[in-house]
């Protein structure tokens, strides 16, 4: 028991109830000793008698401190529970937001991939159309009944001789000389009266019959 009348602050901190409890018990013992003195007991024995009448001072002190701290413990429990609930809520919110973000990201990637595939398909179709448009030859010359642009077949090949006889309407093929000018500048000459001479046409060729 360390309680004394002096030395305690006027307003002890509420978090530590022991100074107030010590002071309260010390006051009680002093009052009791005063009564013993008033009843005729010697002053030096009065305090010992007061302590004996009080009983286990330290046990009473501990019991009072435990009761006072009960409220603080409860507040701590509430604080812990509230903090835990808030932490769980924040984690759940974060997980939910991440899940939403991840789902949105996957959906965006799928949409972008589909868009990419569609664009690639469109490019392929356009390239095929362009190639189809480019796969032409130009036929001209005095011996040609129908000069103009002729399309090459999408598959297989077309030779000069087949083009001129089947589609070009060559009237004087026997005497004709055909000149094929390639887009790279090459010039190929062949005679129509020599059936062994023929050449596969390429896109952009200019065929002139003289």
């Amino acid at each position: 028991m360390s309680a004394t009348a002096a030395g305690h602050p006027e307003a002890p901190t509420p978090c530590d109830p022991s100074p107030e409890i010590d002071d309260e018990i010390a006051f009680h013992l002093e009052q009791r000793a005063g009564d013993f003195i008033a009843a005729g007991h010697p002053p030096d024995a009065a305090m010992a008698m007061a302590r004996e009448a009080f009983g286990d001072v330290e046990a009473v002190r501990r019991a009072c401190i435990r009761i006072q701290n009960g409220g603080i413990t409860l507040i701590r429990h509430i604080h812990t529970v509230v903090t835990t609930v808030l932490a769980i809520a924040v984690i759940a919110l974060a997980v939910g937001m991440y899940t939403q973000y991840h789902r949105a990201r996957v959906q965006t990637e799928v949409a972008l991939a589909a868009q990419h595939n569609l664009l690639a398909q469109l490019d392929e179709e356009r390239r095929a159309e362009r190639q189809a448009a480019d796969a032409t030859v130009y036929v001209s010359g005095p011996g040609i009944a129908r000069p103009g642009v002729y399309h090459l077949p999408a598959s297989g090949t077309l030779t000069v001789r087949r083009l001129l006889i089947a589609g070009g309407g060559v009237e004087q093929a026997e005497a004709g000389v055909v000149e094929v000018r390639r887009t790279n500048g090459d010039v190929i000459e062949l005679r129509l009266d020599d059936v062994a001479q023929d050449v596969d046409l390429q896109p952009g060729d200019v065929v002139e019959v003289r």
């Binding site: 409890i21 309260e24 018990i25 009680h28 009791r32 009448a53 009080f54 009983g55 286990d56 046990a59 009473v60 019991a63 009072c64 009761i67 006072q68 009960g70 409220g71």
Partner: peptide
């Protein structure tokens, strides 16, 4: 009044 019971009772009632 048992003095050892008085003060815990006072603090409990206050709580």
């Amino acid at each position: 009044v048992e003095e050892g019971s008085l003060y815990p009772a006072l603090h409990r009632l206050e709580k």
